[in-house]
């Protein structure tokens, strides 16, 4: 019994550590310049999500969460990077963003603000809830919001697409702690994530073919009040 309790405590600590690394990955993803390194970070972030799902699945004896973990690994850590590598040539993946819209120190400050804010948002819900929710809910929300920010300031197609998937990771990091029925959604979301990336990758390739650039931040043809 003591041994079991010991394992339980260790797993809770592991989940806390995973939560910290998960948050860190979102912040690094926000500042990484090269498309290839953003992709690598996204894969690591997805693996962290899967580890958290496995740990929580073990703690709550939930087969659904184990399934969520497996789907995450297959869809986000294997299929999505494969698809991206195949659909887009090496030249697009190696593109760098030399100038950010917002410079890195300011972005870090904003990320800090978002972190404080997301704890503030969920604080009223955390009273009396378990150790796992205490970690996953605020961290998940935080990663989601940092992802939205990253999406807004990125100018290249591939990092923007991966920021979109990182938002998804954030939502599910919170989701696995608060509901066990996330398996069916994760199954669908995993499949759809693959579809989304495929659609976005084909679109990126078409953009590159027709406009010679994948800098989506430069797409500003459609607006009001200016002549062609």
């Amino acid at each position: 019994m003591d041994q079991l309790m010991g394992i339980h405590h260790i797993l809770v600590d592991v989940n806390g550590l995973v939560g910290a690394l998960f948050l860190l990955s979102a912040v690094v993803l926000m500042t990484a310049r090269q498309a290839q390194s953003v992709l690598r970070l996204f894969v690591r972030q997805s693996i962290l999500l899967a580890i958290s799902a496995f740990v929580l699945g073990w703690l709550h004896h939930s087969a659904e969460l184990m399934i969520v973990g497996f789907i995450t690994i297959i869809a986000k850590a294997i299929l999505i990077p494969q698809l991206l590598t195949r659909t887009l040539g090496p030249d697009i993946r190696s593109r760098r963003e030399l100038e950010f819209i917002v410079n890195t120190p300011v972005s870090l400050l904003i990320a800090l603000g978002i972190t404080v804010l997301s704890y503030f948002f969920v604080a009223p819900l955390l009273m009396g809830s378990g150790q796992d929710i205490l970690v996953n809910l605020p961290v998940g929300l935080d990663v989601l919001l940092i992802g939205v920010y990253t999406l807004a300031v990125r100018r290249e197609a591939v990092p923007q697409m991966l920021a979109m998937m990182a938002i998804d990771n954030g939502a599910f990091f919170a989701g696995i702690a608060i509901t066990t029925s996330s398996a069916i959604i994760e199954l669908a979301a995993g499949l759809e994530g693959v579809m989304v990336v495929l659609v976005a990758a084909i679109l990126t390739r078409t953009l590159a073919q027709h406009m010679g650039t994948t800098e989506v931040g430069a797409l500003t043809h459609l607006k009001e009040g200016e002549s062609e």
Partner: peptide, 26 residues
């Protein structure tokens, strides 16, 4: 170029919206 720009914005912004909504459903 205009249609592709529209498609890109459509995909990125509305999928982001749906992902935010899923947290609400959770």
């Amino acid at each position: 170029p205009k249609a592709l720009e529209a498609a890109w914005k459509y995909a990125v912004i509305t999928i982001m919206g749906a992902t935010i909504a899923v947290l609400g459903i959770f």
